[in-house]
Amino acid sequence: MDAIVFDQVRGGEVLEEVTLSVPQGSRAAVIASRQEECDLLLRIMLGLAAPDSGTVTVLGQEVGILSEKALNHLRREVAVVQSSGGLVSNLKVWENLVLPLEYHSKLSAPDIEERGTAALQDVGYTGRLMELPAHLSVYQKRQIGLARAIITDPPLAVYQGIFSGLSGSERNALVAAINRFNRRNPERTALFLSTDEAALKDLDINLRISVKGSSAHD
């Protein structure tokens, strides 16, 4: 079964026709030529933007025909680790970390605390928990973004350009944490969206796909 299928998807002036499929449990790298393409692929994949043509199926559900409620349900199954960390600026680090669990789950506060603490240890975060994201470094923001993905234990994890602008040691630590997380559940699909193939070295990737942007921008 495929976790993600793009069938003849076109996206305005940014994306040429994209056809790809990512089998469940695989760790795939999708290499685009521009960041815009990665962003649009992600947005189309999770129903935040509609493609001009074609269909997208994620975890067995066709995204284009889902209701808002069903889309939100699908998005809960997909953890996205963004290059910015995807943190909410007026929530503290800890609040950002546990937000999806607090919102979607019925777990008790001690259970959430236990999961959150374990995830922070997994990613090696040593900063302050009651700090606002504005005070964090890019690396720390990505650590929290990854920890947030870890605590939700999703069937599909998407990593969007998260290695750019990091030092060698920071990159290595993040790669190790991601590999550990992905190996923990062989059923979990991992998708790395990047413009730089070299940045993905050392990751357990078993599928590489290149997408072409529209010639209008080339």
Partner: peptide, 21 residues
Amino acid sequence: AELSQMKIGGEIESLALLGIP
């Protein structure tokens, strides 16, 4: 001001990606 800054910073979309309307 807070909401507009959140929107411009992509935080509203980040919340949507978490399945939080």
